[in-house]
Design a protein around this nucleic acid. Structure first.
Length: 323
DNA sequence: GAGGGTCAAGTCCGT
DNA sequence: ACGGACTTGACCCTC
């Protein structure tokens, strides 16, 4: 797909360690500076776009490549430079103020390399560092001194074989601001809803209703006791669910007015691994009605591949008056 | 300009 | 043991 100039302005830019290592130091630093300026501006622009949407859609995820190679051992020094930090502090503070003015809920979703429950202590240590990078950005934007201000969150999975106990240990390595912003999401495979609820006394829980379906075949309901426990974990802040659907090209003949039956699909030979893949759009109206039943209590964060279009169409389905 | 290979990092599943 | 998925693919380089 072609990327227009206006798309480039809202999309983040990035680079690679290999590329930076091939340049002179001055060239590499210039590139990092330019990317930093571009990416912060792109968040500011996205904020204006999202801030003009109806309230149910006023949220977005900031890419983890906002400040590339922040924790990479050869290049991290760049992000410790006082002039660089002063720039981030000034520009991101303005972004945070604007988000609060426009009532836009922002999130980070660190990569799969953040594994706070890993059996390898060095990976846990580096995961905490990577998490603190996101926390630095949040702090510059004015978040972290209180519990999920404006619904802000930095969401991770409970990655690692040590599970809930390992995750608790990982939390202890984090700064107070990080602990105010971290959320943990249930997985399809590794750690399900029961596992993340085991840390809900320390950490707000993001319920991914599609992951839970893949794992259990259950269409969990908003009045379920476990869902109430998820809500409690947010301590009064409006919680969020993640919503996605299995790829439309996989279930091409499926009735869009009928929720897929996991047991039946597995019997027909569909593999969980394939069913995990997210669709481009919210093609199943029955699933949409199910997801929208959470709307009174939860923000619904859309994980369809065509994010903005998907969420707009879903919002139209919820109430045409909203959009 | 198009298209294909590359990319810092962890974990788990399927073969 | 190893490739692939996860992941809001983007970027670089070659042709």
């Amino acid at each position: 797909m072609r990327v227009s100039a206006s798309d480039r302005a809202v999309n983040g830019r990035s680079t690679t360690v290999a590329w930076l290592n091939r340049q002179t130091q001055a060239q590499a630093e210039e590139r990092l500076w330019n990317i930093m300026e571009h990416n912060i501006q792109s968040v500011a622009l996205m904020l204006e776009i999202v801030g003009a949407l109806p309230p149910v859609q006023r949220m977005f995820r900031i890419g983890s490549e906002l400040l590339p190679v922040y924790t990479e051992r050869h290049w991290r020094y760049f992000w410790q430079r006082p002039d660089v930090r002063a720039h981030c502090e000034r520009e991101l503070a303005a972004v945070g103020r604007r988000a609060r003015e426009l009532d836009v809920r922002m999130s980070f979703h660190p990569g799969q390399f953040v594994c706070l429950a890993s059996v390898n202590p060095d990976i846990v240590r580096r995961s905490a560092e990577e998490f603190e990078y996101h926390t630095d950005c949040a702090r510059w934007m004015g978040y972290g001194s209180s519990w999920h201000d404006q619904g802000f969150k930095i969401n991770v999975h409970m990655s690692g074989r040590l599970g809930a106990e390992g995750f608790r240990n990982g939390l202890n390595l984090l700064s107070p601001e990080a602990r105010n912003l971290i959320t943990v999401e249930n997985d399809e495979m590794g750690h399900g809803l029961e596992d993340v609820l085991a840390v809900s006394d320390r950490c707000a829980v993001v319920l991914d209703i599609h992951h839970h379906w893949i794992r259990t075949g259950e269409y969990i309901q908003p009045d379920d006791a476990r869902v109430l426990q998820v809500m409690d974990s947010w301590r009064g802040v409006r919680p969020a669910i993640h919503y996605s659907v299995s790829r439309e090209d996989l279930l091409v003949d499926h009735d869009s007015e009928c929720k897929p039956d996991l047991t039946q699909l597995l019997q027909q030979g569909f593999k969980k691994q394939r069913l995990r893949a997210h669709s481009d759009f919210y093609w199943n109206q029955a699933c949409n009605r199910w997801a929208l039943s959470f709307l009174p209590k939860f923000d619904i964060q859309c994980e369809s591949k065509s994010k903005n279009l998907g969420s707009t169409l879903l919002a139209q389905a919820s109430d045409p008056a909203l959009v």
